Amino acid sequence: MKHLIFCIIMIWPLLLAAQTKPNTTIPFVLEDNCVYIYCQVNTTDSLKFIFDTGANGSVLSETAANRLKLPRTGTTHNVGSNGTNTVSQSAGNVIRFGSLTKSNALLTLIPYEGFKFDGVFGTDLMKGYVIEVDYHKKELRFYEPAGYHNDLGAYARCKLRFVADYPTVTSTIVANGRRYTGRFGLDTGAEDVLTVAAPFGRKHGLPARLPRIGTAVSQGSDGSTYESAVALAPEIRFGRKCFYRVPATLSQSTSGADATEDKAGFWGNGFLKRFNAVWDFDRNYLYLKPNKNLYTEL
């Protein structure tokens, strides 16, 4: 008996050591389906940022930029969901999130109107880390990829494929016995469940094949406001899982991200919030485990 107890005592520290310690843990709030954290830009703290895997660069609102007196160092084209516009940029900034720091950060300055946040935390700040999104504890945990060894046996693994620097997964819409498969972007910065890009919808005749259940009015980062039909997809296959009676916004955009030819559409955080997630940008995998939000209303 003494020998058995000794073995247990020896093994227990090994089990504890198998859990990787995060570089930093950041609490978040969930509002209108989206994840928000607080960051510091230069010397100004407590700026509210949306955690947005659909943005390949980080953003500060023009209002916040004016308040911080950020210098304008150039311009760029911003691609919104329904159009594009020319916006300013500010280089050489320092962004602090938790105990981590991004130096010489480039911020795109967008005149957000009607949005209740100061900035966008894009994938330029996420890459180089493994990030756990825990909706039970409402935490983001950032890890070094090389030392990450947490047990993901209870998670489903999805291969991430980047299309124009945008993380996508292959998904299938099933309707009337037919399958329509494409690469759908993963956009934690979008409030809705699913948007079908206009070219993909037209190609497969989805506006006629899916029953319409309503309309949605949206505002893109380019400032445009637009109305889209909302239809009911009888079945969606995401990875190896099936979901039924999923509301899908059918875009009719002729420009912007929703008019893209290279993606079939976008999963928003109205869907993604239903899973605790591990984003491994180093190995290009996404791990998902159902959480308490799984059966909340779509």
Rank of each mutant, 00 (worst) to 15 (best):
Y38E: 14
Y38Q: 10
Y38T: 08
Y38V: 01
C39W: 01
Q40Y: 12
V41Y: 09
V41N: 11
N42C: 06
N42D: 15
N42F: 12
T43W: 11
T44F: 14
T44R: 15
T44H: 11
D45H: 12
S46C: 01
L47S: 09
L47C: 09
L47I: 04
L47V: 05
K48A: 10
K48R: 15
F49R: 08
F49H: 04
I50L: 15
F51L: 12
F51K: 05
F51R: 08
D52K: 09
T53F: 11
T53L: 11
T53I: 07
T53K: 09
T53N: 13
G54Q: 13
A55V: 05
A55W: 04
A55Y: 02
N56W: 00
G57I: 09
G57L: 05
G57P: 00
S58C: 08
S58W: 04
V59F: 15
V59C: 12
L60M: 07
L60F: 02
L60E: 04
S61W: 00
S61L: 01
S61V: 01
S61R: 01
E62S: 12
E62F: 02
E62V: 06
E62T: 14
T63Q: 10
T63F: 04
T63W: 03
T63N: 06
A64E: 03
A64C: 03
A64T: 13
A65L: 07
A65N: 06
N66A: 06
R67C: 01
L68H: 02
L68W: 09
L68E: 03
K69C: 04
K69I: 07
K69W: 06
L70G: 05
P71G: 05
P71E: 11
P71Y: 07
R72C: 05
T73S: 14
T73R: 10
T73K: 10
T73W: 07
G74Y: 10
G74L: 13
G74P: 07
T75L: 02
T75R: 13
T76G: 06
T76Q: 04
T76H: 02
H77S: 10
G80Y: 11
S81T: 13
S81G: 15
N82Y: 10
N82C: 09
G83H: 06
T84F: 00
T84M: 06
N85C: 13
T86G: 09
V87C: 14
V87P: 08
V87R: 14
V87L: 13
S88E: 10
Q89I: 05
Q89P: 00
S90N: 12
S90R: 12
A91P: 01
A91S: 14
A91D: 15
G92K: 14
G92W: 13
G92P: 12
G92V: 10
N93H: 00
N93A: 00
N93K: 01
N93C: 02
V94M: 12
I95T: 11
R96T: 11
F97V: 03
G98D: 03
G98Q: 06
S99H: 10
S99V: 02
S99M: 07
L100F: 03
L100R: 02
T101A: 08
S103M: 12
S103P: 05
N104V: 00
A105Y: 06
A105N: 06
A105H: 09
L106G: 05
L106K: 15
L106I: 10
L107F: 06
L107E: 07
L107Q: 08
